[in-house]
């Protein structure tokens, strides 16, 4: 099995995520694109976990590089990133819904950043 395949898949997914974040105007679609990017990073971690030892064949390992006798840390990092992504989606969707309740829109082009909410409500 070629080691390049999962890495290329992951980089393509990450590029798609970047494209989606920059292209979309709907905040929920931006969150979906962010999910794609997080999954690309997860895929890179898991693939590195599986392939790095066959890639680094003649390299003598350092002691600090192996905190545990059998390194399977990529899967652990992937799990942590999944949890982080779940928390991020929860808070992000709470923000999006609150913004929708105030302004009746989820278009992130029209979000005014240098103005407080109550001023915005009074003026417009």
């Amino acid at each position: 099995m070629h080691a390049v395949i999962p890495y290329v898949i992951a980089s393509l997914l990450f590029a798609l995520g970047v494209y989606g974040v920059l292209r979309r105007r709907n905040a929920i679609l931006v969150l979906m694109a962010v999910e794609l990017m997080l999954n690309a990073v997860n895929l890179i971690l898991v693939a590195a976990d599986a392939t790095v030892r066959s890639v680094l064949n003649g390299v003598t390992p350092e002691a600090w590089a192996y905190p545990v006798p059998e390194p399977r840390s990529g899967a652990i990092f992937a799990l942590f990133i999944i949890v982080l992504a779940a928390a991020e989606v929860g808070v992000g969707l709470a923000i999006v819904l609150q913004y929708y309740r105030l302004h009746r829109a989820v278009v992130i082009d029209e979000v005014v950043l240098d103005e407080h909410d109550h001023e915005k409500q009074v003026t417009g």
Binding site: V4, V8, L22, S54
Partner: peptide, 28 residues
């Protein structure tokens, strides 16, 4: 702009990783 940046990121990452791993074989 989105297409340009996205394509740039995709090509850059793909080139980097393909160069790093070239034709390395690994057993599952």
């Amino acid at each position: 702009p989105a297409a340009i940046i996205g394509a740039g990121v995709g090509f850059g990452l793909t080139a980097l990783l393909a160069d790093a791993f070239r034709w390395t074989e690994f057993e599952l």
